[in-house]
């Protein structure tokens, strides 16, 4: 290929803070995920689930069914738009169902978002610019958090808005604002924990297969193990091995709704465990993210 005759033009301008550059990492990460057609199978599952809830809410509120019939229909979907005291928050239940989709999506996209930077030695590309590894790590964590939020928190809030929209007044939103806060709190816990875990795991394992196997082991085997140990010893603290339960408990701790006293007892421990795991992962991540990787 010959040299293009285009002339070189200079550029003069002010460079902004490297923290703003982390948003570019988020933008590019979302671009990477949404451009992969194979991921749309998983994203489609999440969208389908969201639309199902959306249609159910629409149908029930517009069909003006008797209250009992409405309640029965909601129960089929495990959803309660305005929970009574001691009742499970329907939006949180929706987010938990969406979390399965998120888990599958992250298992596959971790390699693309983070692992590829290590595998293709792209870290010098990032770290030789004006950002350092703090900005890189924060950018990648925000990117994963954005994906998690787009599949859990945002649709849950949309459902909350939808339900309020179909009621005759703004009374639903005013009376149940705590639901929106609890959705945000649980969403924040999901984002923080899942992003730190997947970014660290992907930084070390790099390729799709090992990440997917380890990730699914974390979130499937530990649930089974926790359940088995609890059955064998009748000790509820074994439930703390289940990361989903830990995240749910911490979410509940954020907005103070507990169905059972037992859950309340172990919620603080769940927070300690998650904080500990996240802290260890962050230390490992900081050690792993280096511009120069000398092996021999």
């Amino acid at each position: 290929m010959g040299i293009n005759n285009a002339h070189y033009y200079g550029w003069q301008g002010k460079l902004h803070s490297p923290w703003i550059s982390t948003l570019s990492i988020v933008r590019v990460a979302l671009l990477q995920v949404f451009r992969r057609k194979s991921y749309w199978v998983v994203i489609g599952l999440g969208v389908f689930q969201f639309l199902s809830f959306w249609i159910v809410i629409y149908a029930i509120t517009q069909a003006r069914l008797p209250a009992n019939a409405q309640r029965d229909l909601y129960e089929v979907f495990g959803f309660s738009p305005s929970p009574e005291p001691g009742e499970e928050n329907g939006y949180i239940a929706f987010m938990q169902q969406q979390s399965v989709v998120v888990m599958i999506l992250l298992a596959f996209s971790g390699s693309l978002l983070v692992g590829s930077d290590f595998r293709m030695k792209s870290l010098p590309f990032y770290l030789s610019r004006r950002i350092d590894r703090r900005h890189y790590i924060v950018g990648k964590l925000l990117a994963v958090s954005a994906i998690v939020s787009l599949l859990t928190t945002v649709p849950a809030l949309l459902l909350f808005l939808e339900y309020g929209m179909f009621t005759p007044s703004v009374g639903y939103w005013r009376e149940n604002w705590g639901i929106a806060v609890s959705v945000l709190a649980y969403g924040a816990v999901l984002c923080a924990v899942l992003s730190i875990l997947i970014v660290t795991l992907s930084a070390y394992l790099q390729r799709v297969a090992p990440i997917a196997i380890t990730w699914s082991s974390l979130f499937v085997l530990l649930i089974r193990l926790a359940s088995y140990l609890q059955d064998a010893t009748d000790n509820n603290y074994w439930y703390l091995l289940d990361p989903w339960r830990d995240m749910r408990l911490v979410g509940k701790l954020c907005f103070g709704v507990f169905l059972e006293q037992e859950e309340h007892d172990i919620a603080a421990w769940a927070a300690v465990i998650l904080a500990g795991v996240c802290a260890v992962c962050l230390v490992l991540l900081v050690r792993r993210v280096r511009a120069v990787d000398i092996v021999e």
């Binding site: 550059s21 590019v28 671009l31 992969r36 590829s116 930077d117 293709m120 010098p124 990032y126 004006r130």
Partner: peptide
């Protein structure tokens, strides 16, 4: 400006997006 020895590319991106990302990371307005 640093041109590394390794491939150091970001998968799935297009050429113009890759160079734009480099500019963003340098702190240029998008």
């Amino acid at each position: 400006g640093y041109m590394p020895e390794t491939a150091a590319t970001v998968p799935v991106l297009k050429g113009v997006e890759f160079v734009t990302l480099a500019g963003d990371l340098y702190g240029m307005p998008h």
